[in-house]
Design a protein around this nucleic acid. Structure first.
Lengths: 145, 145
DNA sequence: AATTTGACTTAGAATAATTCTAAACGATCT
DNA sequence: AGATCGTTTAGAATTATTCTAAGTCAAATT
């Protein structure tokens, strides 16, 4: 038993079914870890958190599960500056803000029309299927959030 | 003797001086390699190209030189999807397009007003000093460019 | 119910980009 | 010439991630 809500459990097995993969306890637990704390954890952090709920899970399985979740579209990878890959279950279009002081990554909502405008800077021969937008800098003091 | 033009040679020694670092043959040669072929090479590719002009240079020195050029602001690192870091001497604000077929990276000019608009999607507590914009997809066929 | 199948999990080894270390180098200053 | 100090060098070390090969498990087939 993990902490997935019925809704999320359904989304998970639907997405897995749809891509011809199985719903397993390991995948459910890793997914619940991502949903429970949306701080863009690294694979290592996911491993630690998952292990506390399922002590027998291995690092390789965590990597496998994350890759599976990415492949079926439930989770996105966030790569910033050669740091370890982070994982993000936020499927809405959004940008990221990377704080130079803490290394933390925050989601920044992006209005849909901005996405459209962005698409227009691309010359015609480029057909983009994904856009990645990362800001880097500092948080105004007092707002550690 | 490397293939740096006077203008670029000047920019290099100015930037190095300004950040308290020396102009060395290795740094000049690495910089000229970057300027001569602007295809966003990896450190390894820079190493190969530099070695053909200066056979005694080592990989570590190439990494050191690239780091130096980045630190004095003449070169930008381009990180895409955990692939090896690429190096780009294009200082104008621009985005990148990453072709899924060939792995190649292209510069995409971004109009200044677009940069301003982007800055505005950031909530007030975020102070960004850099913006990174990467498109991924395919090139329209026939335009291998 | 036993067997087969194939996807999944596991521990540990392997990989590869990058960084580190310690010694050697070389230009400049005394 | 000797001292200083930033730079270069070869090779070792690091580390996130992937690979390998054996073991597990559940569902499908006999």
């Amino acid at each position: 038993m993990n902490s997935l809500k019925q809704m999320d459990r359904g989304a998970l097995s639907d997405a897995l079914d749809h891509s011809g993969q199985r719903t397993t306890p390991q995948r459910e637990t890793v997914f619940s870890v991502l949903l429970d704390e949306r701080d863009h954890p690294t694979a290592d952090e996911v491993y630690t958190r998952t292990k506390s709920r399922m002590p027998t899970i291995s690092m390789a399985t965590v990597y496998n599960c994350l890759e599976t979740l990415v492949s079926c579209g439930l989770v996105k990878q966030v790569n910033i500056e050669r740091e370890p890959t982070r994982y993000c279950p936020n499927l809405a279009p959004h940008a990221h803000f990377h704080c130079r002081d803490t290394g933390r990554v925050y989601d920044v909502p992006v209005p849909p029309d901005m996405m459209h405008e962005l698409a227009e800077v691309l010359p015609g021969e480029y057909r983009a299927d994904s856009v990645e937008l990362v800001f880097r800098g500092h948080l105004a003091k007092g707002k550690t959030k």
